[in-house]
Amino acid sequence: MRQDLVLLVIFIAMIGVFSAINPRFFSLPAAANILQDFSPVVLMAIGQTFVIASKGIDLSVGSVLGLSGVVMALVIRACNEAGYDPSLTIGLGLLAAMAVGLAVGLVNGLMITYFRLVPFIATLATFGAAAGLSLVATGGVQIAGGPQAVIMLGNKAYGGAFTVPVIAVFVVIAVSWVFLAKSRFGRWTYAIGSNAFAARGSGIDVQRHLIKVYMLSGLLASLAGAFVYFRLGSGSPLSGRGGELSAIAAAVIGGVSLHGGSGKLGGTVLGALITTAVLSGLIMVGVEPNWQQIVVAALIAFAVGIQSVRGPSAGGTS
C-alpha cells in the first residue's frame, strides 16, 4: 500500500482516538489551532523534502525561522514608527524576512558545493550563527511595535479556521508540489540525490542546482518565520527552537528517504499534519508539554526504522 495512504489512515485513526478521550479534539477551534501549528512546520518540511531528496540535510531551518521573524519585526517596527502605510510596512518586513532566508540558504549551498563541507556540518554552523544573531539583535526579548493590521492579518479567521497566512501556506504547498513532481527542477533534485556523479555526467550543473535547493529551503523557513510573526504579532529569537527536528520528522515520517533520490511531497504534508496533531492531542488529553520533543524524536526513530526495513527506495517519487 502507498505510504501516503497509510499515513492518511493513521491520521484518521488518531483523530478517532484523541476525540474519544477528549471530544474537544474533534472541534473547529481545535482544528484551527492545529492548522496554526501545522503551517510553519510544513513550510520548513517542504524545504527539507527538497534537501533530503538531493541527499542532504538542513539543520538551520529552525534558526532561520527565528532570525527571519526577528528581522521582519525590526523592519516593521521601524517603518511603523516612521509613519509608513501599513501595507507597505508589512510588505517591506516580509521582503526583509525572505532576504534573510535566501542569504542563509546561499551560504549553506556555497559551503556545501564549493568548500566541500558535508551538509550536516555546514548547516549546523549556520544553525548556530543564525540563532546567535537573533539573540544579539534582540537582546533575548520579543520585538513588537507593528501596526494593528499585523494582528488582524494573522488572526482573523475565515470559516472559523483559515486565516490569510494559512491560506497562503496551502498555496505554497500546491506550488511546491508542482515544482517537485512535475518540473525539471524536481527531476534534477531526485537525480542528484540518486547519483550525483551520473547526474553530472548527464549534463546537470550539480553545484548550481544544490545552491538553489538550499536557498529554497532557506526561503521557505523564512516564510515560516513570517507566519509565526503574523500569528504572534511579534518576533522572538526563540520561536524557531526545535523547528529543524519537527521539519525533519515530518519529511521522514512522510516517506522521504534519508538515502536521497525519493520522497513525495504529499507524504511530507501528511507527516507535518500528523506530528502537529499528535502534539496537540497529547496536550488536550493531559500529557505534559515537556514530552513533545521526546514524542517527535520517537516518531523519527520509528519512521527511519520502517525505511531501513523497506529499503532505500521505499519512499518512491512524487
Score class of each variant (00 low, 15 high):
Q3H: 04
D4L: 00
L7V: 06
L8G: 02
V9D: 08
M14D: 02
M14Q: 03
A20M: 09
F25V: 08
S27V: 00
L28I: 04
P29Q: 01
A30T: 12
A31E: 05
A31W: 12
D37Y: 04
F38Y: 04
V41L: 02
V42W: 07
L43Y: 01
L43T: 06
L43G: 09
G47H: 06
G47E: 04
F50C: 05
S60Y: 07
V61G: 14
G62N: 11
S63L: 01
V64L: 06
V64A: 03
G66V: 01
M72Q: 13
V75D: 14
R77C: 09
A78Q: 11
P86R: 04
S87M: 15
S87H: 14
L88T: 15
I90C: 06
G91T: 09
L92Q: 11
L94S: 15
L94V: 15
L95E: 11
M98Y: 01
G101N: 02
G105M: 05
L106P: 01
N108A: 09
R116L: 03
L117F: 12
I121Q: 00
I121M: 07
A125E: 00
T126P: 10
T126I: 02
F127R: 09
A131L: 01
L133T: 00
S134E: 03
T138S: 01
T138F: 00
G146C: 00
I151D: 14
L153Q: 12
G154R: 11
A157H: 06
G160C: 00
V166W: 02
V169F: 14
V171T: 01
A181C: 05
I192W: 07
G193T: 09
N195R: 10
N195D: 15
G203C: 13
I204P: 13
Q207Y: 13
R208E: 10
H209L: 08
H209A: 13
L216S: 15
S217P: 10
L219D: 06
L219Y: 10
L223C: 13
F227A: 01
V228S: 05
F230Y: 15
L232W: 10
V252T: 02
V252E: 09
V252C: 05
V252P: 01
G255I: 09
V256T: 05
V256K: 04
H259C: 09
G267L: 12
V269G: 10
L273N: 13
S280N: 15
L282G: 05
L282S: 07
I283P: 08
V285C: 11
G286K: 06
E288S: 14
N290W: 08
V295P: 08
L299H: 08
F302W: 08
F302D: 07
G305F: 06
G305S: 03
I306S: 07
Q307K: 00
R310W: 03
G311M: 03
G311E: 10
P312C: 06
G315V: 04
G315T: 07
